[in-house]
Amino acid sequence: MRAFEYVRAADVDAAVATVTDDPFASYLAGGTTQVDLMKDGVLAPERLVDITRLPLHGIEHGPDTIHVGALTTMEELAADPTVVARLPIVREALLLGASTQLRNMATIGGNLLQRTRCRYFRDPSVPACNKRSPGSGCAAVTGAARMHAILGVSDRCIALHASDVAVALVALNAVVRIQGDQGRRSVPLTEFYLESAEDPVAENMLAHGELITGIEIPLLPEGARSGYLKVRDRVSYEFALVSAGVALVIEDGVIQDARIGLGGVGSKPWRARSAEEVLIGAPPAVETYRAAAAAALAGAWTVPGTAFKVELAQRTLVRTLQNVTEVSS
């Protein structure tokens, strides 16, 4: 019979040391993924290290960047005046990302580490899940796959990373601050996540025991346009079928800079650089947007349940670009 222990970390160093030294220990923050998966029997840590009282709350405002403590809640970040004024893409993604109750619980660090909603992963009675038991197969590939990914996937795993705000943050070149027992490091969010196509288990480059302590979000330049569009069946309270977060700088009728994130499609929050390349240097026009969207989805790998997402994601990206640039069809 296995033990189970709950401990409250005294400080960051102690928390990191405790989890690093115990292969069966996990951090506990907002709990919205951790507690849920423990109940499902998918996660069975023997020690939970509650970090919610560590001094990792709050937002510091620099001239070009905001530094967000990892334990800042989604609701707190969405309400930050700088986020409201300068990062509408982040605010919209946060507000569309969960109910207020969940936003009050979920921390931004935890949000980045949320686990896939794939029901085959979350139900231990399903034998075939390469993410849960490596080598067992993927039940989703031949299963109900409407909420699954089409980019960065393969027949090994089509699990979706369902975060909304992470889509905005990869588009913004946010940087994750990490502390481990070997010290601290900072990693661009675009390099933080790993695609599942090759290895469904490793979802990011955190080593066991490493803790996200904060996120640096570069502010968009004055005059940049940004927005986030989430497409789903219900009006609210649902994960994205597809979503798009875009930020554009347009000068002299030409797109000078473009950042595109796509949600609901990737095994990780998807940065669509190929679409950005199409946009940069081109005038804001629907034809350009369509070409960019086609480029973004060029590498899609679908199963029957997800095939519609290729077209829907393109239309969603086009619409989002139209919305932020006020270009009509």
Partner: peptide
């Protein structure tokens, strides 16, 4: 309510996956 082919397992047996209207709808 979606049933998995072959196994007969219900694939979306949660309130997160089986959608009913919310207030906004």
């Amino acid at each position: 309510t979606v049933t998995d082919a072959g196994t007969g397992r219900i694939a979306n047996a949660t309130f997160g996956d089986y959608l009913i209207p919310v207030n906004g709808d």
